[in-house]
């Protein structure tokens, strides 16, 4: 994936940025920080004053029951949806008023819970467009997209990483469901993310496909900062450095997998859920 990766921003944390201690003892910057993020639909508060810190390099999972507001939160982090109140800071920059395209160009990339790819394009074209869009403008009217060597290299690396190498020339509409989910991931990866927002990447996949994605995410850990929304608790507890629990739009608790497993409030919400009671 090196072709698709942006160099991580090195150097000392800028003043005013939160410096957190990781379990291994390395100091880490906060890469993404939200403060009082709020979204209402009429009387329904879907995001309720969410303040969140995601550290550079961690895999941070967000869990919560259906309708808790996980997708809505991702929409506000990616810039697809404007928050009613609150701020979003990314890499020390206030992006609260920045649109989704501009955030993507800064390395804040997302995948969709409901597969969202370009059906008429091949797998490689899909990934190459994502790679191009995050790196350079597309005001090029003569040379083919697939002649953009940098974009194609990033695209092919992402396609290979998601296990689609053999399907690169296939039109997206002709892919199977699981393969479309893989392409969804490949597009986000091809864009050379610094921070990946993954909305249920394993939704609807077979056990075998899910296992492959878990392996992929394990490989992506540390290279990228990841925010993972997922209902598959096995995957979440196996992968996450920290977990936040979202209930009715409110951030209930954030902690390590062990802390979350043993939290009485979380246990009450997930009462009967085997994964948490093991």
């Amino acid at each position: 994936m090196s072709a698709g990766a942006r160099p991580p921003e090195g150097g000392a944390p800028s003043p005013g940025e939160v410096v957190a201690q990781r379990p291994e003892g390395r100091t880490m910057n906060t890469l993404l920080h939200t403060e009082g993020l709020t979204k209402r639909y009429g009387a329904l508060v879907v995001t309720d004053a969410v303040s969140l810190d995601i550290r550079e390099g961690e895999l941070h999972a967000i869990i919560g029951p259906n309708g808790a507001g996980k997708t809505t939160l991702i929409n506000q982090l990616s810039g697809e949806l404007a928050a009613d109140a609150g701020r979003v800071r990314f890499a020390g920059e206030d992006l609260s008023a920045t649109g989704i395209a501009a955030r993507a160009r800064r390395g804040l990339l997302r995948s969709y819970q409901i597969t969202s790819v370009f059906d008429e394009f091949t797998v490689r074209e899909n990934a190459a467009l994502a790679a191009r869009g995050a790196r350079r403008h597309a005001f090029a009217f003569w040379r083919g997209l697939l002649q953009d060597a940098a974009a194609v290299a990033a695209a092919d690396a992402a396609i290979a990483a998601t296990g689609l190498a053999a399907r690169a020339q296939v039109i997206a509409a002709d892919l199977g469901y699981g393969e479309r989910r893989q392409l969804e991931l490949a597009m986000a990866l091809a864009a050379g993310p610094r921070f990946l927002l993954l909305d249920e990447p394993m939704a609807g996949m077979s056990a075998q496909e899910s296992a492959a994605v878990v392996e992929l995410l394990r490989g992506l850990k540390r290279k990228y900062t990841l925010l993972l929304v997922e209902h598959d608790m096995d995957a979440v507890f196996a992968l996450a450095d920290r977990i936040s629990v979202l209930v009715y739009g409110r951030l209930l608790v954030t902690g390590t997998p062990d802390e979350i497993r043993n939290d009485p409030e979380v246990r009450a919400i997930y009462l009967g859920d085997e994964e948490l009671h093991q």
């Binding site: 160009r105 969202s116 370009f118 394009f121 994502a130 869009g133 790196r135 864009a191």
Partner: peptide
């Protein structure tokens, strides 16, 4: 095909 997706790739 999918205007929303174009924006999300930058």
């Amino acid at each position: 095909q999918n205007a929303r997706r174009v924006a999300s790739v930058g």
